[in-house]
């Protein structure tokens, strides 16, 4: 795995010197900022009238479709180029003929994408600091915030793994993006099935198990559930395994 770091650094460098990266980051920050500000505005005006015990933190990370909209927009463009572009342009040949294991290539590219994803979310920690500053008497549960960010990390890690797998399976960036978006959308729709299927049925349990909405509600409330950890663990490991096999397949024919 000594080759992991050079590939990782190259991927990081390659991403951050492209204008696309900064456009994505700015759009991401603006969208999340708007989402956050609207919630703050709502909680400052009439949250008590809603009659529940939802906090600004749990509302920001859970019970909102905005989080997934951002991920749908963000993840496919971030991952589509990882293998597909290199295969299309032929630059992958230099990598594949080097004494590097396929697993190292896949993991390094994945780690770079994940680091980029984390770097995009990192500034949003400032939101909590800003909130604390604006309302010093308000409650802010940093432990629940840590749980919410763990959820964001796991959801993103799972989605990125799917995106990387899609990129490894095709030469076309567009197809990779389309395939990723379709898989993520299917997962989301399956999750929505939790709301439309009857409680207690197998289908309902299946939908609830894959429901990113339900997962994020738990994480945002400060609940870490072993089922969610296992689900995202497999959602990360399985696509990475498939991607490694795919890389092996082109490599060795």
């Amino acid at each position: 795995m000594t080759s992991f770091w050079p590939i990782y650094k190259r991927e990081m460098f390659a991403f951050f010197v492209t204008p696309l990266a900064w456009v994505l980051i700015v759009v991401f920050l603006f969208t999340q900022g708007m989402h956050f500000y609207l919630l703050v505005d709502q909680f400052a005006h009439n949250a008590a009238e809603l009659g529940g015990d939802e906090t600004p933190l749990s509302a920001f990370f859970g019970n909102t479709v905005l989080l997934y909209m951002v991920l749908f927009v963000l993840v496919p463009p971030m991952t589509m180029r990882l293998f597909a572009e290199e295969r299309r342009s032929g630059t992958i040949e230099s990598l594949m003929t080097a004494p590097v294991s396929s697993a190292a290539v896949v993991l390094a590219k994945y780690a770079a994408a994940l680091t980029t994803y984390v770097a995009m979310w990192l500034p949003t920690v400032l939101y909590l600091v800003i909130l604390r500053r604006a309302d010093p008497d308000g409650q802010l549960d940093w432990r629940a915030a840590a749980s919410a960010y763990l959820g964001v990390l796991l959801v993103g890690a799972g989605y990125l793994a799917v995106g990387l797998c899609a990129s490894a399976l095709t030469r076309s960036q567009f197809l990779a993006m389309l395939f990723t978006a379709l898989v993520l959308l299917t997962l989301f729709i399956l999750g929505v099935g939790e709301f439309v299927t009857s409680d207690g049925t197998l289908l309902h349990d299946l939908c609830a198990h894959v429901s990113v909405w339900a997962h994020m509600n738990d994480f945002a409330s400060g609940l870490v559930d072993s089922r969610h950890l296992v689900f995202y663990g497999t959602m990360i490991a399985l696509p990475l395994f498939v991607a490694t096999r795919a890389v092996d397949a082109w490599r060795w024919g």
Binding site: F36, Y37, F43, A44, N46, A48, L50, Y127, L131, A134
Partner: peptide
């Protein structure tokens, strides 16, 4: 379940995040 924010505080939040 709510926040006590003055108009100035909300404007500050808006300025920072947006």
């Amino acid at each position: 379940v709510a926040m006590r924010l003055s108009d100035d505080a909300r404007a500050e939040v808006r300025r920072y995040v947006l």
